[in-house]
Amino acid sequence: MEYLTSTDFTAIRLSVKVALAATLLSLPFGIGFAYLTSFCRFRGKLLLEVLINLPLTLPPVVIGYLLLISLGTHGWLAPLFNLLGIKLIFTWKAAVLASALVGFPLLVRSIRIGMESLDPQLISASRTLGARRLDILCTVILPLSVRGICAGSSLMFARSLGEFGATIIVAGNIPGVTQTIPLAIYDYTSSPTGQGTALSLCIVSVVLSVLVLGIHETVGRKFTRRA
């Protein structure tokens, strides 16, 4: 086991930053899709559910490749991003996007479980008391789904910390720029002298994961007691 270098610390900071950004970016969409699939009936709902869950079954490398051919220099979305002056590929933002896509099904599923465990009569009660849809979402559904939202967020954060396949394709493995903990470990394990540092980063990964899961359990128990 060896001491970590400043590049390794940058990788740790970047991992946390990417995971946090991916989670925060996905949260409103996750809540929206969970609400849609839990409480609304519409045509194409099954297709939407399949699409949301697709990243769960697809290899992350496939997701990364699809992102690359969509957002790359010659990708079909490239003109739009060029027009907006946004450069994504091989930046930390691409890592955020990759992590967000890969972790999104976990986020939506957890929030959905929280929403679907609500007593539907509470929603009926709020409607008869004069509350409209958005009002009900903000004053009844979201407060009573906090446990699911916390669970989904922590799962997504943890999944993002470990994201590798999609990130390396779409963001590359540039030390100090897009290199996250898993990518750095991959680099060290490819080098004959990097085994010790790889082990140190593995320990950091374990500590971060334990921290996230600890927070997840604590928050979960707090809300269980309250309910």
Binding site: Q121, S124, A125, T128, G130, A131, R132, P143
Partner: peptide, 18 residues
């Protein structure tokens, strides 16, 4: 329902637990 001004008392109270 939110515009009918018909309020309900349900079988199991249905109070908002939060």
């Amino acid at each position: 329902p939110e515009r009918r001004r018909i309020a309900m008392v349900f079988q199991n109270a249905c109070l908002f637990p939060h």
